[in-house]
Simulated scan of single mutants.
Amino acid sequence: MEEKVLLRAYRTMRTIRAFEERLHTEFATGDIPGFVHLYAGEEASATGVCMHLDDDRDAIASTHRGHGHCIAKNVDVKAMMAEIYGRTTGSCHGKGGSMHIADLAKGMLGANGIVGGGPPLICGAALAAKQRGDGGVAVAFFGDGGSNQGTTLESLNLATVWQLPAVFVAENNGYAEATAASWSVGGGSIAARASAFGMPGVTVDGFDFFAVHEAAGEAVERARSGAGPTLIEVQLTRYYGHFEGDQQTYRATEVQEARAHLDCLKRFRARVTESAELTAPELDAVDAEVARLIDEAVAEAKAAPEPTRADLETDVYISYGIPH
């Protein structure tokens, strides 16, 4: 892998980590409205998949835990931070918040508060790409909880029936909120379900960027070539609770083990420095650049204006005649 590609991958993962860890701190101040679900620990998944995608022809649909997917799909970090703070400079003008960040210009169809809401959307996006004939691919990210939703299963079936250029990425972090996937996923494997729908299914180590990148590359190329959809199960661990404020009484030491021995950023850094593909100073420079970016994003978000009463009547399909 070329040096510039490796640096891009590291920068994306580091940006996601820094963004989420800063939100963890900022949310505790009470200045951020609504709920926040953090993606820290899962960076290799979004990054490994989205590095194969273009802004113009490829689309993704996300989940309530969508910040990492947005950053990996090149949504502006400062606009994202402003959106989470509910400011007019946000990517959705402060009206969506954490769970509804979207940027159609980047092919980011939106984070989604509905479990299993993304797969049907990417079937539509994939069908549009197929009709256009531009080689576009659509990717749905969903969790182990979303894998059990009828919307997801119907989408897997439809994608095969229509031979859509689609990739379904099940991010199995072990818990659907507090329900263990080991109990709730029938058969014990999300990837194994692919055979029931006539598509390839593969399980990958979500702590290993290179493993995710390779599996995603094969799936995206298969979709672009007209060979149909693929299901990828990425096994990983989220570092924080289901949402900010979750006491996590349902799990004990696994997060500490993951941070100490499996962390995707540590593994990436060790591999590329040991192979001399990148140097520690190069990676340190990225860390510093990202830290400055996040500082700027928070400062600008806090200084930005909030939506006004007049903004209630914008970005809607119908004017409801709200009195002034």
Rank of each mutant, 00 (worst) to 15 (best):
A40T: 15
A40S: 15
G41K: 11
E42A: 14
E43M: 03
E43G: 06
A44P: 13
S45M: 06
A46W: 01
A46V: 09
A46P: 05
T47Q: 08
T47S: 15
T47V: 14
T47A: 15
G48K: 02
G48W: 00
V49F: 03
V49P: 10
V49T: 10
V49K: 06
V49W: 02
C50L: 13
C50M: 07
M51S: 04
M51C: 11
M51R: 11
H52V: 06
H52C: 05
H52T: 09
H52P: 08
H52Q: 07
H52Y: 08
L53F: 05
L53C: 04
D54R: 13
D54K: 12
D54S: 15
D55H: 02
D55W: 00
D55L: 02
D56A: 14
D56R: 09
R57S: 07
R57Y: 00
R57A: 09
D58S: 01
A59N: 11
A59V: 12
I60M: 04
A61Q: 09
A61D: 08
A61S: 15
A61T: 13
S62A: 13
S62I: 06
T63N: 13
T63Y: 08
H64M: 03
H64D: 03
R65I: 03
R65A: 08
G66E: 08
G66A: 09
G66F: 03
G66L: 06
H67Y: 04
H67S: 12
G68W: 09
G68K: 11
G68V: 14
G68D: 11
H69D: 09
H69G: 06
I71Q: 11
A72P: 06
A72Q: 09
K73M: 08
N74M: 07
V75E: 07
V75W: 00
D76N: 14
D76I: 04
D76M: 03
V77C: 04
V77I: 13
K78P: 00
A79Y: 03
A79D: 09
M80F: 00
M80W: 00
M80H: 01
M81L: 09
M81N: 09
M81I: 09
M81E: 10
A82K: 15
A82G: 11
A82T: 02
A82C: 10
E83R: 04
E83G: 04
I84E: 12
I84A: 12
I84Q: 11
Y85W: 14
Y85E: 06
Y85K: 04
G86T: 04
G86M: 02
G86S: 05
R87S: 05
R87N: 05
T88K: 15
T88S: 12
T89Y: 03
T89M: 05
T89S: 15
T89E: 13
G90Q: 10
G90D: 11
G90I: 04
G90L: 07
S91T: 15
S91I: 14
S91F: 01
C92E: 11
C92S: 14
